[in-house]
Design a protein around this nucleic acid. Sequence first.
DNA 1: ATACTCGGAGAACGGTTGTTTACTGAATGG
DNA 2: CCATTCAGTAAACAACCGTTCTCCGAGTAT
Lengths: 207, 207
Amino acid sequence: MSHTLGIRQAQKLKTRQALLDAALRLLEHQSLSSLGLREVTRAVGVAPTAFYRHFDGTAALGVALVEQTLGSLHGMIGAILAETGDSEERLDRSVGLISRHVTAQPAHFRFIAREQHGGVGAVREAIAAQLRLFAEEVAAALAAEPESAGWDAEDLLMLGGLYVDHMVLTASALLDAGPDGEQEVVRVARRRLRLVTVGRAHWLDAP
Amino acid sequence: MSHTLGIRQAQKLKTRQALLDAALRLLEHQSLSSLGLREVTRAVGVAPTAFYRHFDGTAALGVALVEQTLGSLHGMIGAILAETGDSEERLDRSVGLISRHVTAQPAHFRFIAREQHGGVGAVREAIAAQLRLFAEEVAAALAAEPESAGWDAEDLLMLGGLYVDHMVLTASALLDAGPDGEQEVVRVARRRLRLVTVGRAHWLDAP
DNA sequence: ATACTCGGAGAACGGTTGTTTACTGAATGG
DNA sequence: CCATTCAGTAAACAACCGTTCTCCGAGTAT
């Protein structure tokens, strides 16, 4: 089944990945719409024309970058929410997990936050699609909890989307704050999350 | 006191405003970091060098655009929150107001949403400063309400920030959805806001 | 061993960019 | 009325851009 890649195909994947890595590094201080094709190839050390062997243009590279960045995160949220503990514990764990991920791979999150509303339509749509998927996953995980008794699917999806948006917002705030302000951001993020959780607990009280 | 502007200074302000307007129009389909200085002057019909009479570069233009766009919105939120009616009514009014503003001036909100996490640092900071100011205004308005009895300043600011972020998120969602999906976005935005309001009502129940 | 595939190199293309320098002419103020 | 200020112009600069075309040489399959 695992057909060992030919040394040719392997090299191609290698330079392709090099292009993606270089682009991600360059995108730390600028946005995709201003990223030059030549800029990327120069950073990698290949001819500008080699770029076209892998992507149609910087927009296509951006889409690939989205899938690589967000694709590897699926299931992570579900795993967190599936763990045991009271709501306060899980809340802290969630925020802590985000904080650690952002610290470990700042460039990835910066890219997503930046291009979520950026100037390249295809990339925006790719991110939106992934985040919608996340929201559905969170909704599914929430549905399995006893606290969700009596909730309809639409409200669960609303809550899932709220959590996802909060996650992205927190990641972005962490990046803006830097290492010094991290503690403060985490504090506020926790508190916001707690407010939402309180709202969730009393959601069915109102008409 | 109101020293009538000389016809010279008036002309300068006029072309300056023309530059800002043209830039805002161009920024509907791209982001600031890819906006060319010449592109703007070409749209206005002036020489590229005239640009420097008004701004140091496109970044400075962006900052001016932020202040013009968000500066005119101060007090609006406070006015809404100060109106009477039960929380459900005010909630609907708030979302409706955002929806109407976004429909009336899409380019302004698109610009803010796009550059909030965009590639130009100075613009990011300008937006962040304005939004922080908004959050403080909302917090001050909330503090005057009877529902806020027992709340400390920090929690009020947290809640104000939550409302502001929700507002920006809603505006962005409206822009992404277009006229067709507007109703759906408004529905979800209202529901999210209601959840936060429920959480607010029971915030002091928990330790 | 031979023919083929194909990732990458190289050169050249027209076009655009930001910025500098020197200049014009109308509004301004004494 | 006359000297000065100054918003906007015109030309030129070197640097960079995306894209096309042609070619090479190592990997591949027969």
